[in-house]
Computed example of a mutant assay.
Amino acid sequence: MDKITYIKELKKNLKGLPMEQREDMLREIEQHIADAIAAGKEESFVIARLGNPEILAKSLAGEYYAENNNILKAIPFFVSAGIGSFFMVFLFGGMALLFSAGAVGSIVGGIMRTLGSERVNMTMFNMEVPRILSIPTGLLTAAFLFVLVYLCCRTLKRYFIRVANAWKE
């Protein structure tokens, strides 16, 4: 594959990115190829070292989305990275989803219990929480769960960036 074909393939696979970002990435790759050729390397060698343009595009797009805190758009790029990514996405993504649902549920439960609902039980350290403390207890539990959500999302983001950087090497 020659430089022109490689760049066309790369451009085709970067379609989901914003135009400005896509053009910057293409310029950077073209400059890398030109610099390597100017340093005396064969074009075919440089292209081979860059690897499959589809995989490079996934890496670049995934890194862009991860660095710009758009984790949901980054997920498809990294699930395709293999079983390790599949495991990481569904483990930490699933935990984040469950923790956030628990946080919302603890707030709603605290409000319902304060308003007199008999369906909601609140215990902490094997002791029943007084009805008047149901909302603060629910908020405290929610705050703890949201910290866990944040840590799961941060772990995913760091993993995505690490995988994207490994693909680029």
Rank of each mutant, 00 (worst) to 15 (best):
M1S: 15
K3H: 07
K3M: 07
K3W: 08
T5G: 11
Y6Q: 03
I7D: 03
K11H: 07
N13Y: 08
K15E: 11
L17C: 07
P18V: 02
M19G: 11
E20P: 05
E23D: 14
E30W: 05
E30D: 15
E30N: 14
I37G: 03
A39P: 00
A39H: 08
K41I: 01
S44M: 07
S44Q: 09
I47Q: 08
R49E: 13
N52S: 14
N52P: 02
P53M: 01
A61T: 09
E63F: 03
A66S: 12
E67G: 04
N69V: 05
A74Q: 03
V79P: 05
S80P: 01
A81M: 00
S85Q: 12
M88D: 01
L91C: 09
M95C: 07
L97S: 04
A101R: 02
A103I: 04
G109Q: 01
M112N: 03
L115R: 06
E118D: 11
R119V: 02
N121A: 12
M122T: 05
T123Q: 13
T123I: 13
F125S: 11
N126L: 09
V129L: 01
R131T: 08
R131M: 11
G138S: 07
L139F: 13
L140R: 06
A143W: 05
F144E: 08
F144N: 10
L145G: 06
L151D: 08
R158G: 15
W167I: 10
